[in-house]
Write a protein that binds this DNA or RNA. Structure first.
Length: 806
DNA sequence: GTTTAGGCTTAG
């Protein structure tokens, strides 16, 4: 039997699990979660007298601390509703961990806690305030009240004036049934304005004009027939009739007006009173309204299947996708599970501009109405998220012969196809209202949508799953509804795991498959991702800065002294034209291998002395290999670190300072060598070459967690570009930059980030303290979109003319 | 303790 305890000690066998550590693989046995109630939802009556209540708890006062949704069922939900208030601290045990379907919307924990099992338990602790510490009150409210209770015990009782007893120039509280309303809209002044007309058993209809600083402080009216309780409204006369206008301290509570439904107060007020009398008042008004056909006479809510061309109506629907058309118009793609008897107009928009799925199964497409929302409604529509349930008021069905934005002139305008327009303005209550997930109307709509998904949808996935696929990654490999921008090239045949599972894993070492989005990466300056790696000593260092390299070159050229060439070399000069018009030519000393010269391969390799870095680079256009040298004690020597030991076209090669022998420069052995390349030269010079590598740290995310991983050993495979090319080639650099931008658009929300299938390798590193740390690297994974850049073409410009000495 | 709006259709 689930139980709620007030103020009781948590049993010693239970241990606390921090909210941040909760995942779908959490074993909840003997664990408890503790937090402060930051939101308490209404008690919802579901089928067969069952109750559901959703609450949100947060570990600490700080907004930085994690928060999690808890869903309570049955009597526990009822007791919770009666005894717990926002601000109370609760402890929950005996929970099950589920995947939170609302994580994208509410940003709470990716999991939720379900309290339905027989061992489910809640411990409640009311905050100790001087007036509240002696606690008969707390136990009293847990046992006697049947609905939301006020936070204070000494609050004044409100009295309500019947609408035929209103006197001019007084501030009053009233109850009424809504017979007309305009949703809150920005007034020309500083407030949000809404207008309503209410009635009560007096049968008088009273106009109310409400001004509030915040939109949400207006009565949350979902339909005509709803019941409002207005506190602090003042009476005034306008055109010979009495009106109500919000007065200082105005507050409103709204109730569903349908007989038999739960009496759940809807309000933004943090604390409000609700007594038995209120419950009674609502029920009386409901009964009176029902017997006087207040709702049925005025409601214009119809399903899509009942729409008539040119008619105005209200539509209860789910938003599936949306796209901005222009500054005055937004497209909302909605459905209610019913089929309109008229062909629905298709509006063509750029796929990139669509939020939500771009297309649906053919069967579903036939049910989707395109709603064009104009002018003052655009701003509100822009904030809506696909998946949201809406009621659109005063929608008009327009035959498609009228012009439709988004169609270009070359596209045929379809005739007699229905489009739905929400015109600008607020006449006739025109506007959009978001319906909460737990409202009765949404529950009914949802079951209709689910029926469709079960019966007709050929895609094999239910509607909610479809939204899920768009919102969160599929959990298994075989679900390819959302294309990945990467592909795995490993040989593992293992299941995809969620990041939270991976992080919870006790023995993570080895390979894992994940489906993730890239939430951030570093370094942001991509040239810093390029490093030099020594395979001998495993050192990793930054690519030397040009300025530093330049200094080494000028140092060497300043100390240039003549030295006789080694026996295997011939000395000569090259003439390097001045860099700008009018600047003088430079003559540089070079050495060349006599063997190569005799073979006619003079351009394959030269040793250059006394040149600047810039001059060396310019010479590299004309010689395949250039080794910068200096004279040291009469012998040829390489330049000091960090000068490259070799220039090959636009590529530079560096040697490891600690692993290279400081030997005299010798002639490369070209016997049996087809091409003189960096390897041949490094060997001849006894240099341990450093390898260009790419190293980045990426933060991955999925619906459950984030994970920091390295992209290193397989970075070249990932980008399909060599690090060496990146070092030398602007195009390759741009390719990486474009790729990262596509995977993680600047300022883009996660909906714009593509999903990535990845293989990760977890390995252990040992820090100074000797404690192992688990690191992750992306392995055997390659980008399949965007396309790789064209491969580098070897620079082929003609070099300066050498003046060879014979 | 101001003003706003004070229902009553866009004109795509």
């Amino acid at each position: 039997m689930p139980v709620l305890f007030e103020g009781a000690q948590v049993p010693a066998h239970l241990t606390n699990i921090p909210i941040s550590l909760i995942s779908t693989s959490t074993d909840s046995a003997n664990k408890y979660v503790k937090g402060k109630v930051i939101h308490k939802g209404p008690l919802v009556v579901s089928a067969a007298d069952n109750f559901i209540l959703k609450t949100v708890i947060q570990e600490d006062d700080s907004s930085q601390k994690p928060s999690i949704n808890i869903v309570l069922f049955g009597d526990l939900a009822k007791s919770f509703s009666q005894s717990v208030n926002q601000g109370d601290v609760v402890v929950a045990s005996g929970f099950q961990v589920g995947k939170s379907p609302t994580v994208r919307k509410d940003n709470h924990h990716a999991c939720n806690l379900l309290l339905s099992k027989s061992d489910a338990c809640i411990y409640v602790y009311h905050p100790q305030s001087p007036s509240d510490s002696k606690s008969p009150q707390a136990s009293k409210r847990s046992s006697t009240c049947s609905a939301e209770v006020s936070q204070t015990t000494k609050a004044p009782k409100y009295t309500y004036v019947r609408l035929d007893n209103l006197k001019l120039s007084s501030t009053v509280n009233v109850y009424g049934v809504v017979v007309f309303f305009k949703l809150p809209h920005k007034s020309r002044g500083t407030h949000w304005c809404s207008t309503l007309k209410i009635t009560d058993q007096s049968n008088l209809k009273i106009q109310c004009t409400l001004f509030c600083n915040k939109r949400e402080d207006h009565p949350q009216i979902f339909q005509v027939g709803d019941i409002v309780r207005l506190h602090r409204v003042k009476t005034q006369s306008y055109e010979e009739s009495i009106q109500l206008i919000s007065a200082y301290g105005f507050a409103a509570v709204t109730f569903d007006g349908i007989v038999g439904r739960a009496v759940e107060p809807r309000t933004s007020s943090r604390s409000f009173q609700f007594h038995q009398e209120d419950q009674q008042k609502v029920e009386e008004l409901r009964a009176w309204a029902a017997s006087h056909s207040i709702v049925s006479a005025t409601s214009t809510t119809i399903p899509l299947s009942a729409t008539q061309p040119k008619a105005y109506f209200d539509l209860t629907c789910q938003l599936l996708a949306k796209a901005p058309i222009d500054t005055t118009c937004t497209l909302l793609r909605v459905w209610d599970g019913s089929q309109c008897p008229h062909t629905l107009l298709k509006v063509i928009v750029e796929p990139d501009s669509v939020e939500g799925p771009v297309s649906f199964s053919e069967n579903k497409e036939n049910l989707i109405a395109n709603v064009l929302v104009y002018d003052n409604h655009v701003e509100f529509a822009r904030q809506l998220k696909p998946g949201t349930f809406l009621r659109i008021f005063n929608l008009r069905a327009i035959p498609g012969s009228s012009r439709v934005p988004g169609l270009t002139s070359s596209q045929a305008v379809e005739h007699d196809h229905l489009a739905f327009h929400l015109h600008g303005g607020t006449s006739y209550g025109r506007g959009i209202q978001v319906l909460p997930e737990n409202s009765q109307d949404v529950q009914e709509l949802k079951s209709a949508l689910e029926m469709f998904s079960k019966d007709k949808d050929d895609s094999g996935v239910s509607d909610s799953e479809l939204m899920d696929i768009w919102c969160t990654p599929p959990e298994t490999l075989d679900d390819e509804a959302v294309e990945s921008c990467t592909e795995r090239r490993c040989i593992h045949n293992i299941e995809t795991v969620m990041l939270s599972q991976l992080k919870q894993c006790n023995d993570p070492l080895g390979s894992h498959h994940v489906r993730v989005q890239l939430s951030s990466f570093k370094p942001h300056r991509l040239h810093q991702a390029l490093k030099l790696y020594c395979s001998k000593c495993s050192s990793l260092q930054d690519v030397p800065d040009d300025e530093v390299v330049n200094r080494v070159f000028s140092e060497a050229s300043r100390n240039a002294e003549l030295c006789s060439p080694p026996s295997w070399a011939l000395s000569g000069k090259v003439n390097l034209p001045g860099i700008s018009h009018g600047s003088s030519n430079r003559t540089l000393h070079i050495h060349s291998s006599s063997e190569l010269l005799s073979e006619g391969k003079a351009k394959e390799l030269i040793y250059i002395m006394g040149s600047s870095l810039e001059e060396t680079c310019r010479l590299a256009d004309g010689y395949q290999n250039i080794i910068p040298v200096r004279s040291s004690e009469g012998r040829l020597a390489l330049l000091d670190w960090p000068a490259p030991f070799l220039f090959r076209g636009r590529k530079r090669y560096y040697g490891c300072k600690s692993c290279s022998e400081a030997a005299a420069v010798s002639e490369p052995s070209c016997e049996g060598v087809d091409v003189i390349d960096e390897k041949v030269i490094a060997e001849a010079l006894q240099v341990q070459p450093l390898q260009f590598v790419l190293l980045m740290e990426l933060q991955l995310q999925d619906a459950t967690d984030t994970l920091d991983v390295f992209l290193w050993k397989h970075a070249e495979m990932f980008f399909n570009v060599s690090a060496e090319d990146v070092a030398a080639n602007q195009e390759a650099q741009d390719h990486i930059s474009r790729t990262m931008n596509a995977l993680c658009p600047k300022g883009g929300s996660d909906v714009h980030r593509p999903w990535l299938d990845m293989c990760l390798t977890a390995y252990s590193t040992v820090c100074d303290g000797g404690r192992g740390q688990t690191c992750y690297q992306i392995c055997d994974t390659g980008i399949i979109k965007p396309r790789p850049p064209p491969s580098e073409s070897y620079p082929s410009g003609s070099g300066p003319t050498p003046h060879e000495a014979a």
